[in-house]
């Protein structure tokens, strides 16, 4: 492989990782934008999502890599799996908000944030105790199609991940920018009290943010499985931390920022791993985070202080 081929290959890998992190980052950003709450349960909602996806694929008789689907059956299986996974994680997110976080809504201090850490560990242990500690082989029904671009390889699964992630992000952007509830969400993020006095039901907006963020985490968990061909109760921490870092890097609370941050983290991980070894990739990712925060505390696209009185 030439240097250029390597570059191209890592760009392909980085974009796929970036898509996964961007979807995760959006969940952090949507909730933070409205509640100023860092929702650590998001880490393991993502992990649970990848198991829900695994079980859903198994319902179609798909185990491991032996069954290959093409055409309509493939599209159908993917559509159903994404839908089921996203609905399930969305409902989990709404449940966490409704029953565990809403009672703490007006409690000052870190109570709600600590609760999200607790919920994260509960999810973690539920999966550990019910599924076990071994990694699980993730079904991959995609035909092994690939094209060579120079010495680099672009596989069908990467193209698919890009398309799905792009569609989800376009859908979210459309929702936030163009629908009434999306507009209420932005208004609430900018001035919750004023939004309330326009007649916005803030509880409903918060619930929507949790639903959408958690659904995207589910999609991200499914993409993780398709990309790495495994899942495990442990995957939440590393991916979640990258997703969170991506949200902060882009400017937490800022939707395009989360997408950009995710992409950057994915590319840095891929190129950093290539250039100086994957063990160093984490060091680079978090060094970049620290540098950005030192020189641009609000993140790349963020604003320092929300406009509130």
């Amino acid at each position: 492989m030439t240097t250029f081929d390597l570059f191209l290959q890592q760009a392909i890998n980085g974009l796929s990782l970036g898509a996964m992190y961007a979807l995760l980052a959006l969940g952090f950003t949507l909730v933070y934008g409205i509640l100023e709450l860092i929702n650590f349960s998001h880490f393991n909602v993502f992990m649970v999502g990848s198991f829900i996806a695994l079980w859903t694929l198994q319902q179609f008789g798909l185990f491991g890599q032996e069954t290959i689907l093409v055409g309509l059956p493939l599209a159908g299986v993917l559509l159903v799996t994404f839908t089921v996974t996203m609905l399930a994680t969305g409902v989990i997110g709404v449940g966490i908000e409704r029953f565990l976080l809403r009672p703490l809504r007006d409690v000052k201090g870190p109570a709600a944030m600590i609760t999200t850490i607790g919920v994260s560990y509960i999810l973690f242990n539920i999966i550990l105790l019910t599924v076990g500690a071994d990694s699980k082989n993730f079904p991959n029904p995609l035909p092994p199609l690939q094209i060579a671009i120079g010495g680099a390889v672009l596989r069908l699964r990467e193209v698919l991940i890009w398309i799905i992630a792009t569609l989800l992000m376009l859908a979210l952007t459309f929702f936030v920018q163009r629908t009434k509830l999306g507009r209420a969400m932005r208004a609430t993020a900018q001035d919750p009290e004023a939004a309330r006095m326009m007649g916005v039901e803030v509880d409903r907006v918060i619930m929507t943010a949790f639903f959408l963020g958690s659904a995207l985490a589910g999609a991200s968990g499914l993409i993780f499985g398709l990309y790495y061909n495994f899942t495990s109760f442990l995957i939440g921490f590393n991916a979640g931390l990258r997703g969170f870092t991506a949200a902060v890097l882009g400017g937490i609370g800022n939707v395009p920022g989360a997408m950009l941050g995710g992409l950057i983290i994915g590319l840095v991980e891929a190129f950093g791993g290539q250039l100086i070894g994957s063990a160093w990739a984490d060091v680079i990712i978090f060094a970049i985070l620290v540098l950005v925060l030192v020189f641009r505390p609000a993140g790349l696209l963020g604003r320092l202080a929300p406009n509130r009185s």
Binding site: R183, R186, A187, Q190, D191, E193, A194, A195, M197, N307, S309
Partner: peptide, 11 residues
């Protein structure tokens, strides 16, 4: 009509 206007500043 709120004190200090309170428009949604980024809309």
């Amino acid at each position: 009509v709120l004190e200090a206007r309170r428009l949604f500043p980024r809309m």
